[in-house]
Amino acid sequence: MMTKALKTDRPPPGSVPAKNGHGAAVLVDGVDIRFGSFHAVRNISLDIAAGEFLCLLGPSGCGKSTLLSALAGFVRPHQGSLTVDGAQVGGPDPDLGMVFQSSEALFDWMTVRQNVTFGPRMRGASRAEQTKLADEYLGLVGLRHCADRFPSQLSGGMRQRVQIARVLANQPRVVLMDEPFGALDAQTRQVMQEEMARIWQTSGCTVVFVTHDIDEAILLGDRVAVMTAGPAAAIKSVYPIDLPRPRDESDPAALELRRALRDDIGEEVRKSLRDQGLDPQSASRPDLQEER
């Protein structure tokens, strides 16, 4: 049976794994974002359950990262509201952790341990608490043995794991991830995807994950929200992913979902090309429907 886009944005009962309750519910209600005369996103509404893993998927330039920045409190919506467990998002907050695509967000002059404990240290945590947090979250990402190294001494995948550990050490209730594995090679990316699924299930955080990669979204998400092409991008469709974990990419249901997502995104890519006066025929190629 083919997986269909839901008309509602609320996940069906039982679709989100039961965890330790640490995650927070996120409500995006009628959000418009403008930069001067440029209309980035329009009338976006999403109801994200506590502990859910939601993937945002769509063509390049559709406003996925802009929406994520608004959730993080870095961008103020022109209209609409963003709330976390009912509290308005008014700016950056320790409850909202952001993992960027580039590991350059790490402090090169600090050791791995110092990077991970930076947030708690700024909040006045004791040395003992800092040590405990570093050991816990470096252990969670499998890098406790690298605590005294510097970022330049680590591989790209290891640096991204340090960045995830640094965010989790602040014990956020919502983790926002902006294509965190986009710059990694294929093999490292696959390992990081598997690690991310494990880390999410262990931490219990709510995760909003921006990606261009359809397979990545199917592997990780409870649901996938597909955005239309920009400008003035909106939510085109929302797909539940009712597949057991760990996921098998060869599962017939996964393959059917992949085809549906490719069709949805391909339609938006072709529309974007037509709007630019370009030939949309090239967008029928699968490799162009999944822009990297």
Rank of each mutant, 00 (worst) to 15 (best):
M2P: 15
T3I: 15
S15I: 10
A18V: 15
G21I: 02
A25I: 00
A25E: 09
A25Y: 00
V31D: 02
I33F: 01
I33S: 03
F35W: 00
F38D: 12
N43H: 14
I44C: 01
G51Y: 08
C55Q: 06
C55V: 12
C55R: 09
L56W: 02
L57N: 11
L57H: 09
G61H: 00
C62V: 05
C62I: 06
G63H: 04
K64R: 07
K64F: 07
S65I: 12
L68K: 04
A70E: 08
A70P: 04
A70F: 07
F74W: 08
H78D: 08
Q79W: 02
G80N: 04
T83A: 11
T83H: 06
G86W: 09
G90M: 06
G90W: 04
P92W: 10
D93W: 02
L96C: 12
G97D: 13
G97I: 11
V99P: 09
V99C: 12
E104R: 13
A105R: 09
D108C: 06
W109G: 03
V116S: 06
P120H: 07
P120E: 06
R123A: 14
R127I: 03
E129M: 05
L140K: 07
C146P: 00
Q153I: 07
I164Y: 08
N170G: 15
R173W: 01
L176H: 04
L176A: 10
D178N: 13
P180L: 00
F181E: 07
F181V: 07
G182I: 11
D185Q: 03
M192C: 13
Q193V: 04
E194W: 02
E195A: 08
R198I: 04
W200T: 04
T202A: 15
S203D: 13
V207T: 11
F209P: 05
F209D: 04
T211Y: 06
E216N: 14
A217Y: 09
G221P: 11
R223N: 00
V224R: 01
T228G: 05
I235C: 14
V238P: 12
V238S: 11
V238F: 12
V238N: 09
P240K: 03
L243C: 10
P244R: 03
R245C: 11
E249K: 15
P252R: 03
P252L: 03
A254D: 10
A254L: 05
L255W: 02
R258H: 14
R262S: 13
E268N: 13
V269N: 10
S272T: 06
D275R: 15
R285D: 15
E290G: 13
E291F: 14
